[in-house]
Amino acid sequence: MAKSNPNEMSFLDHLEDLRWHLIRVTLGILICATIAFIFSGFVFEHIVFAPKRMDFPTYKWLCKASQFIGINDTTFCATEFPFKIQSRTVAGQFSADIWTSIYAGLVLAFPYVIYQLWSFISPGLHASERKYSKGFIFTTSFLFFLGVLFGYYIVTPLSINFLANYSISPEISNEFDISSYIAMVRSSCLASGLVFELPIIIYFFTKIGLVTPQVLKKYRKFALVIVLTLSAIITPPDIASQIIVAIPILILYQISIYISKIVVKNQARKQKRASA
């Protein structure tokens, strides 16, 4: 185990400390995954398969919005999607249940994972920096869950609506494999959750001197291209969906610039105090 004084820890002590943090993270995820597995019926019926039904809130909102602007012939106002979900392998449903529970456990245990990460790196920080631990864990978790919700309520239904109604010939019927469907839902939610961590990433990059507000402003145009490319990757290839996804990412980028300014000002203020 780690010594009481972090400054006296050897390399092997750090490895031992890291090992115990990883064990706690794994146990936390497994506990949450077990809970998700126990309630897998609820998870699949009311969460995983909810976006494939037309009574999903997003479709209702988009249907009303389309009718408000005078567009009545829209797929958002249909009665059902023209596709079925099938399991084409012997262990398909069991594997889907296991892996869905694991990823659900990862999402549920995310605040605990961040707490363990912070517990590992905090001994190397100054006392003034460690006092912000609660704020860091809350902000990081909030942004992640906000991104997951964005992926679930925006990216996932837009993707399903586009891909389910896309057809190259009436001779072809859509029968999606359960693993393919779940992978799309999972990637949309997790990718959005990680993208929403951009302000936190910029905060640490600014702290260690990798980026500055001036650099972020200078390469804003390149960032716009990257954002649009990222939006095209995690959404279906239609302009409306890409714009809907790109808008919050651009807002996060602007917030990151503001956060970077604050970090630089605080560092300059500390240097003045130290020199005085």
Rank of each mutant, 00 (worst) to 15 (best):
D97N: 15
Q67S: 11
W61V: 15
S133K: 14
L158M: 05
C32K: 08
R273I: 11
L250Q: 10
L210P: 03
P248C: 05
L15N: 04
A96P: 00
I247P: 08
L210R: 10
I202A: 07
I202W: 11
S40K: 15
A274E: 01
Q214S: 15
E175H: 15
S87E: 15
S241H: 04
I35S: 05
K218A: 02
E45W: 06
A183T: 06
I47F: 03
P157Q: 01
V148P: 01
E45Y: 11
E171T: 15
Y166C: 02
A104L: 06
V148K: 09
F142S: 13
F176E: 03
I114Y: 04
F176N: 08
I178K: 07
F49P: 07
L146P: 02
K3D: 00
I23T: 14
S10K: 03
R269H: 02
A268N: 12
L228E: 00
I69P: 00
F37I: 00
I247A: 03
T206W: 07
V155D: 01
T79Y: 04
A191S: 13
F145V: 02
T74N: 02
T58R: 05
Y115L: 14
A268P: 09
L143Y: 03
T156W: 00
V211F: 01
T235A: 06
I226T: 05
I226E: 00
I102K: 08
P57W: 12
I102L: 07
K217S: 13
I251E: 02
A164S: 10
L198V: 07
I85G: 07
A50E: 08
I234E: 00
K265I: 05
W99I: 10
S119R: 09
G70E: 00
D97W: 15
R19A: 10
S159D: 06
I202T: 10
V107R: 06
V90P: 07
P6H: 12
I154D: 04
E129A: 09
L216Y: 07
S241N: 04
H14R: 06
P199L: 07
A78Q: 03
F222K: 11
Y132T: 13
F81M: 10
V48P: 00
